[in-house]
Design a protein around this nucleic acid. Structure first.
Lengths: 373, 373
DNA sequence: GGGCCTTATGTAAACCTTTACATACATCGT
DNA sequence: ACGATGTATGTAAAGGTTTACATAAGGCCC
């Protein structure tokens, strides 16, 4: 898929196999050098037909060695690069991948992008980005990219199709979801094993001696959140601790909801010794709420998050959390999509990467105060 | 540049002006509906030539009202969208803008991207991203996008051309720099008024009563850094404070260099009461260094940064700094580029946005301790 | 009513590839 | 020596637009 990498400008004509006619052609082409060289220029210089040039580039084994050599030299001379527009038009497929996220300003987004871009370019693809800001109408606009083959595949950051479901279910481009499965189904995705990640967090808290561990969840129905809750439940169960619904709260994944959860718990009779949060935002909110009430973390309460957002290391105390291997996720997602593009059929419907526990400073043993309860 | 926005699928044939022939044509086209509608399908249904369809879309004033109506209805029926590949091929220009940054994983990058993308799409352009990781070879690869009209313009995040200078100076695509001027010159850029920003920081410190204000700079020769230093100098000068080179240090803009600067100052005989840092990274390093020596910020020392990186609000204490209006910069840069694309000649060579002081918690009056000196 | 201008539309070439099909030539087995 | 097979190359069509140029029709003036 990488078209030409002969970009070396220097080329010594005297050692060339090119005939006199070729040299004349070269001279001509240099005069009219204002416009990029086309396959025809190359053909003229190499003294072959354009079909042969095309074959020399894309099916080198089908042309004679001597011819291929001539063509390569002509390419070097002209600095020819395949016109991607013409190629896409002819082939009915492009070498661009559209990446759509609800918000490209999200700091989590950039790291994925790195993985996506590296993998894409390694295979001769470019990437094209768009963001919907959760507006279906805007999502719909990106659909045009596929009608006209401006993009060959789609990476979706949002759990829902950014365009109305009925509109396009029939002719959906090859797609891969990132982080969470796409609602409509049929689209493979790459994410992290949320259950296992949550399990690691709760196991750490248990190992430190916590028995009353609150779970601050996210009531928006996303598989990731459900699975994190499952990890929490499983961990407690394995430790023989009966579930206590009084310390399981649902928020909405924001800082504010973390703070709110703390307030709610203080109004009830049972306080936990640790807060396991569905994501880092919530954890930050919990820490803020606890701090506002004068408590010290991790002395009085332990807190864990999930995601390892860039801020997690800078807040005080630095947050113990579960890391999403973002660059790796991006790489995997793109690899899966490219495979889809060539094979046509998804090999996997779900790729779950292993999340790592990153231990910082927001967890310690339960304070004597609270563990007495 | 926005091709078609008639996407409404519903269309009542009974109210249509279309003749029986048109309805037959429609039926036919619906049968072979697996492939996207072309301009020819539209022409057949509207019973006009493809030239007229093209004109109805791009030069509506050149077709009769009745004809335009028929065409629009046909477009609505077919769901036609201009094939961007064919269009770009014919026009020799595309509706994509290439955005190249050294590192798209940089958290500062995402916010700019938002501004860029919004502005671009508002004008019918899409954006395409790449990152060079400071590798000239990789930068060179992106040049192909211009030879083949895959992109019409270039947004550069790096202060240098990502491809060897000599290679392409002749046929450089319309370009706009972001944050800092591009070395080679001739390329307009959009950034922030660094001098004014620095001046705001130093003026705040002076207003708080500081007289010994250190400047921790960045010795890498970038215009932005030089200008921030100029703002510092000007501020002290205006306050009648003679420059004191003993408390002006050069680092390299990293956290480590901030920490190192603190160590250096402690080894000398004159300590400042405040640290004005060339960027937030350095400021964070300074805070870490000071914290390690047991000092409290802002009680013992005041610290200011520059950039307002996302972490600035999360570190402790939250950093008083100068905000880069990132989304606005992105928007402006894209607007300038689009203007360049239509006019051909840059109207401005440099657009400097006004940076704002954002006051948080890392600055207070000089501690009595130190001010006694 | 004939020449002329204006307005609306159609015809066909061009943009640059890729590739099915045709052609030409060499090789080989008999 | 000849048909069959295989290899290397060329010819031309197709992909979907845009637009210069040609054509046609209508309105106007004398």
């Amino acid at each position: 898929m990488i078209y030409t990498d002969q970009l070396k400008p220097a080329f010594d004509l005297s050692t060339s196999l090119c005939s006199v006619a070729a040299k004349t052609a070269l001279r001509q082409s240099q005069v009219s050098n204002s416009t990029p060289a086309t396959i025809e220029d190359v053909a003229r210089i190499a003294e072959v037909s354009i079909a042969t040039v095309s074959r020399a580039i894309h099916m080198p084994e089908k042309v004679a060695n001597s011819t291929r050599l001539k063509v390569n030299q002509a390419i070097a001379i002209t600095g020819y690069t395949t016109n991607a527009m013409a190629r896409s038009l002819r082939l009915g497929r492009s070498n661009m991948i559209l990446v759509v996220a609800p918000d490209i300003g999200d700091p989590n987004f950039s790291n994925i992008l790195v993985g996506l871009e590296n993998e894409a370019r390694a295979h001769g693809y470019g990437i094209l980005i768009g963001h919907t800001q959760n507006d279906a109408q805007r999502g719909l606009e990106y659909l045009k990219f596929f009608n006209s083959n401006q993009a060959a595949g789609l990476i979706l950051f949002t759990g829902i199709l950014p365009f109305g479901h009925q509109t396009m279910t029939a002719r959906l481009p090859p797609s891969v979801g990132v982080f969470e499965p796409v609602f409509n189904g049929g689209i493979p995705y790459v994410g992290v094993d949320d259950t296992e990640g949550a399990r690691k967090a709760v196991d750490l808290l248990l190992a430190e001696g916590h028995r009353k561990i609150a779970f601050i969840g996210d009531s928006r129905t996303r598989l990731a959140y459900t699975r994190r809750r499952m990890g929490y439940d499983a961990g407690l169960d394995a430790a023989g601790i009966p579930p206590d619904t009084r310390i399981v709260l649902e928020g909405d994944g924001t800082i504010e909801s973390g703070r709110h959860a703390v307030e709610q718990l203080f109004m009830r009779d049972t306080l936990p010794t640790a807060f396991m949060c569905v994501n880092d935002q919530t954890a930050i909110g919990v820490m803020v709420g606890l701090g506002a009430r004068g408590y010290d973390i991790p002395r009085d309460f332990s807190v864990t998050g999930f995601d390892d957002v860039p801020q997690a290391v800078f807040i005080s105390p630095p947050l113990t959390t579960i890391r999403q291997p973002r660059t790796a996720i991006g790489k995997q997602a793109m690899a899966l999509l490219l495979e889809l593009l060539s094979d046509g059929r998804p090999t996997e419907t779900e790729i779950l990467l292993r999340p790592d526990l990153v231990v910082r400073n927001s967890v310690s043993t339960p304070s004597r105060n609270w563990s007495k309860r």
